[in-house]
Simulated assay, not measured.
Amino acid sequence: MTDAILLALAPIFFVLLLGYGAGRYQIVDNHKVDSLNALVMNFALPASLFAATASASRSEMVAQAPLFALFGIVMLAIFFVWYLGSKLILKEAPANASLQALTLAFPNLAGVGLPIMSAVVGPSGGIPLAIALASGSILVSPLSLIIVEMSLNPGSAGAETPAVRILRSIWHALTKPVVLAPALGILISLAGLKTDAVLDACLLLIGHAAPGVALFLTGLILSSQAFRLDWRIVRATVVADIVRPLLAAAIVFSLPIPHETARVVVLLAAIPSGFFGILFAVNYRQDSGAAGSMVTASTVFSIVTMAIVIALLFPS
């Protein structure tokens, strides 16, 4: 068990530290990350998501419907609680509150989830991981982006009605490659269509770069920021690493769903805070410092929480 946990966690922290060191020692410019950000969010990750979902059979996709729904419910619950608390109590700007909520609600499935699922669940873990990623990309990411778009791009004064602004924000959010790719892949799978083997090979070649580059980029961005440890970061770490998996466990183990699905949902919910909030903050020229500190604290603390979840739910 110790070897399995070490095998799952060591590569993650190695690549994170590699990116952090590259930025700290100015081997890579940690203030000019737009190109790497575009590589991950517009090419590598969408390709990986599309290939994983489109290649699944219709029966496999239908079997993962409970995971899609339950994981989506957990993420949306965490998102709304943190967003409303930050906006109403802490008086955060809507854009920052939304990006922080996305950071906590959407685990680092692309960077941390892939090696964890491979080491703990095995080769069969690829499909539920892709479905969980699709759930977050289709449900939570667009919601966060809509809030950011509406708060940062209000349009010319009086030029747009509220309805037009909402529709424009929804359109901008839903046409992001990271949202379109998994949605299209799921539709292809449910329609019973098959993607060409050559296309799959092409997409997987760039898609395989997503986890490593995303982790490297996260470390690179974190190296440009001062780590802030305050009560907000502590609360965020507790929400991401303790409340999220406990909420998932309370939901899945109270419902008549397959035990294996329930275990996978809890394991995925125990993965630390994701980097989407950081990358979107960079993309929209927002403060990524708070989200970066949340990811750092959550990732370090998750060494303990993920080890406990793996030991309890996957003892052999």
Rank of each mutant, 00 (worst) to 15 (best):
Arg228Lys: 14
Phe276Asn: 15
Val295Arg: 03
Ala38Phe: 13
Leu204Thr: 08
Met150Leu: 13
Glu149Val: 00
Met1Ile: 06
Asp200Thr: 10
Phe80Gln: 12
Ala197Met: 13
Trp231Cys: 14
Val74Pro: 06
Thr161Pro: 13
Asp230Ile: 00
Leu174Cys: 13
Asp34Cys: 13
Gly125Cys: 00
Ala201Pro: 01
Ala63Ser: 13
Asp230Gly: 12
Tyr83Ile: 03
Trp231Ile: 06
Gly136Pro: 01
Leu143Phe: 09
Ala311Lys: 00
Val74Ser: 04
His208Lys: 15
Leu39Asn: 02
Ala95Ser: 15
Val140Pro: 02
Gly158Ser: 13
Arg58Trp: 02
Ile233Thr: 02
Asn108Ser: 07
Val295Ser: 06
Arg168Trp: 01
Tyr83Gly: 07
Ser35Lys: 10
Phe50Ser: 11
Gly192Met: 04
Leu49Phe: 03
Ile188Val: 14
Leu184Asn: 09
Val238Ile: 11
Leu90Met: 13
Met61Tyr: 02
Leu222Asn: 02
Ala281Val: 07
Ile233Val: 15
Val265Met: 06
Leu99Arg: 07
Leu184Pro: 04
Ser35Thr: 12
Ala101Asp: 12
Ala236Glu: 08
Ile131Ala: 11
Leu84Pro: 01
Pro46Cys: 05
Pro315Gly: 01
Thr237Ala: 15
Leu70Asp: 05
Ile27Asn: 04
Asp196Met: 10
Leu39Thr: 09
Phe301Val: 10
Gln100Val: 04
Gly21Phe: 15
Arg263Ala: 07
Ser118Leu: 15
